[in-house]
Design a protein around this nucleic acid. Structure first.
Lengths: 191, 191
DNA sequence: CGGTCTCTTGACGGAGTTCAAAGCTAGTGG
DNA sequence: CCACTAGCTTTGAACTCCGTCAAGAGACCG
């Protein structure tokens, strides 16, 4: 399972077996069943998660008490409440497994030590954050430029795997509208 | 003017006068009047911008030909089309000065060389991207949890300086609605 | 003081929400 | 392997937030 992480790292940095072993020591490997929470809104956010197998989602409860999903993470994606993680503060989000999920986790202290000891990991994380930020910048663009209907179809086209693996009401939530409206959109397309 | 950059850097890394001089060589310093573009949609995005004095905005033309602003940058903020910058591709956005603006710019090749030569700058940029990503994650949360009216008032509260310095129609655009509706919201509040 | 850019007003329409109920599907235990 | 149940998806009707359009009122600049 750890091989997934090694293969992923090698896309960004050169790394040998011994080094990888040293790096792994900073992480914990865990596995949770579907529906289980890794982090709960209001609790201090200590860890950053890397998905090895499965899907996680990030969400919060809006004022009506409805869960609002804002991010998914599949294999080789990182996920956390970054603001809370960085400042060691209570989280504004919860994180939950959608499928049975295996993942690595690293605490902020461990991450700091890791980056100090392995400058190539500083390089790696700089690239990871840079890409994550670039992706979220584009997401905001799509969000503002498309109608909800166009937004849904562009999402399906870009991430067909999500539509397979994630229930529709979560996709609707992620895209910022109701499951009822998503159902209506889909009906239009089929006919 | 360069002192602004040095003071900013010192919040993240230790740096002496000689080193700062070396680092500065990777940048160009420029100044543009209000309304001038630094980057135009469709043209290759080569530079990353750091605002010393003034305000920049990032925007694109939607299908109706209306400018949609998605980001502002004031003093000590970085701004670019990150996706295009990273891949050296044509930009999906334009960047324009709102006020007369002085800024530093660095090309991607220069940034790569800078980070290779000064590992502490790799550390600096890792932190910058991490924060930018965390902020955009929270922005998405606000975007999805608030009504347009609440979103406007929370924005005014968090960034009063923007409301002072930026015309209302740009703020409306940034928040994802029309200047007419913003006007209506403001009328409600006053009465 | 003229002209252009920005902000306000109001009438109307439509995209998307809400609520309630029925139809499906998949997982679970017997 | 079937039956039951809980959770997910679909339907439809009423409603509302917000966009569109068009016109007027300020404000700022040369």
């Amino acid at each position: 399972m750890n091989e997934i992480f090694k293969t992923h790292l090698e896309k960004f940095i050169k790394i040998d077996e011994r080094e990888f072993g040293e790096i792994l020591k900073f992480f914990r490997i865990q596995s949770v069943p579907a529906k289980q929470n890794l982090l709960e809104e209001g609790k201090v956010c200590r860890d950053y998660y890397f998905v090895l197998k499965g899907i996680l989602r990030l969400f919060f409860l809006n004022e009506k008490g409805v869960e609002q999903t804002t991010e998914f993470a599949i294999e080789t994606w990182w996920i956390t409440d970054n603001m809370a993680y960085e400042h060691g503060r209570p989280s504004s989000f919860s994180i939950q497994a959608i499928e049975k999920t295996a993942f690595l986790s690293i605490s902020r202290e461990n991450q700091e030590n890791l980056l100090r000891e392995f400058p190539k990991m500083e390089h790696y994380f700089r690239l990871i954050y840079q890409r994550a930020y670039a992706a979220s910048q584009m997401r905001m663009k799509y969000f503002l430029s498309y109608s909800k209907e166009e937004f849904y179809f562009s999402f399906v086209k870009s991430y067909p795997e999500f539509v397979q693996r994630v229930p529709q009401y979560l996709i609707a939530s992620y895209l910022g509208f109701t499951p009822e409206y998503l159902s209506e959109i889909r009906k239009r397309q089929i006919s």
